[in-house]
Amino acid sequence: MPFKEINIFRRHGRQYVPDLRGVELPAIFRGRPVISRDITPLEAEMVQKLCPVDAIATSPCSINLGKCVFCRECEFALPGKIRFTNDYKIAANSREELVIKAGADQPLRLDPDRVRGEIRSLFKHALKLRQVSAGGDNSAEMELNAAGNVNFDMGRFGIEFVASPRHADGVVITGPISGSMADALQICYDAIPTPKIVILAGTDALSGGIFAGSQALDRNFLSKYHVDLFVPGNPPHPLTFINGVLDLIGHK
């Protein structure tokens, strides 16, 4: 290798993040929100009206991470009462867990009882996933690509995206599921051998996000199948995705 390339490699250095479980993101990162116990009903109503995606409920006040686009406007409107922390470990395997209630300030947990037994027995050391973008805006897609890049390198855990659904153990869906992609998604899902898992990545996939209610969507797929992992975010950070999947397959 010529000298020039050696020099570039030296500057490149070691890029991989050694501990994907313990990274701290900058304080400004918009992760898990915390709502103060002291929030008044009037204040809750005010932010409920403000929220662009109807993610906030009143009495008790709560933020649904399945709908939240992490715009942080509720915090700007009520500083001191609502605060988005930099906790990026916000994936869950039930929709109830995604609802952050006033006064709650603990990390999200995967409910072990809800994890199907075969997931941990079969996929703990190797998990191949087929990604389907169904109306995704390409930001979640890029973050999923990044999950396998030189920095995050989830391949170290045997987790990889594959081209053929025949080689996959599950499907990762991004986007609000456009009507025009509904058939292709179904065909892809059918082509994956059982047992197979379903992961929704990004707020658009979880609830439709800002597109919720659009007549151009067809979200029937989700009423047919069990979703094993919900990964919130707009888009989900690669660390959110990787940590969620590791928890799901029971990696330490």
């Binding site: 406007e73 973008s133 986007g175 025009s180 800002i210 151009a216």
Partner: peptide, 18 residues
């Protein structure tokens, strides 16, 4: 395949934040 009805939504979502 990616059609989400964006232009229609701009007229349906009335708030500037939305």
């Amino acid at each position: 395949y990616q059609h989400r009805g964006v232009e229609k939504l701009f007229t349906e979502k009335k708030e500037i934040l939305q």
